[in-house]
């Protein structure tokens, strides 16, 4: 079975530009990529939040209220609901004075079982090194 690993790197602030939203929507679209591939082929995405990008993971987005658009929080929860691997850089979380309690770590409220992981950058680097393709770097 041929599986290719894609690493989606999110390093932009939410809402300021479209990059983090595009990274999330492209990563989520991995769930339907099989329609273009041969039997046994698939892709395995990992979403890595680094630098300013970790601020996408702060709980309590009110994008619908203020901008009238879906929130990045909902996209992250959708990714977790679909069992996508979500890694958040610990050093950058610490840099912003955040804690896991302030971050979107799960999607239990919509029935998700997979949890996001706050990990040292070295672990994110390993994920990037093992990826076949880097996207949204």
């Amino acid at each position: 079975m041929a599986i290719k690993k894609y690493a989606f790197v999110v390093k932009s602030l939410p809402y300021k530009i479209e990059s983090s939203r595009l990274a999330m929507t492209h990563a989520i679209s991995s769930q339907t990529v099989e329609i273009y591939l041969e039997d046994g082929e698939n892709v395995e995405p990992v979403i890595c939040f680094i630098g300013d990008g970790v601020l996408n993971c702060v709980k309590g987005h009110q994008a619908m209220k203020h901008y009238g658009v879906t929130s990045l929080e909902q996209h992250i929860k959708n990714a977790l609901l679909l069992d996508l691997k979500v890694l958040i850089c610990k050093e950058d979380v610490d840099k912003f004075g955040l804690s896991e309690a302030s971050l979107i770590m799960d999607a239990e409220d919509i029935g998700g079982e997979t949890k996001a992981q706050v990990v040292p950058y070295s672990e994110i680097q390993q994920a990037l090194d093992s990826a076949d393709h880097l996207l949204f770097n």
Partner: peptide
């Protein structure tokens, strides 16, 4: 839809991402 891009990446020898804004 976006899955077309991911499928194209699957069979690509190289993938370049140009411009992130």
């Amino acid at each position: 839809s976006m899955d077309w891009y991911l499928a194209s990446c699957f069979s690509a020898d190289k993938v370049l991402h140009i411009g992130g804004d």
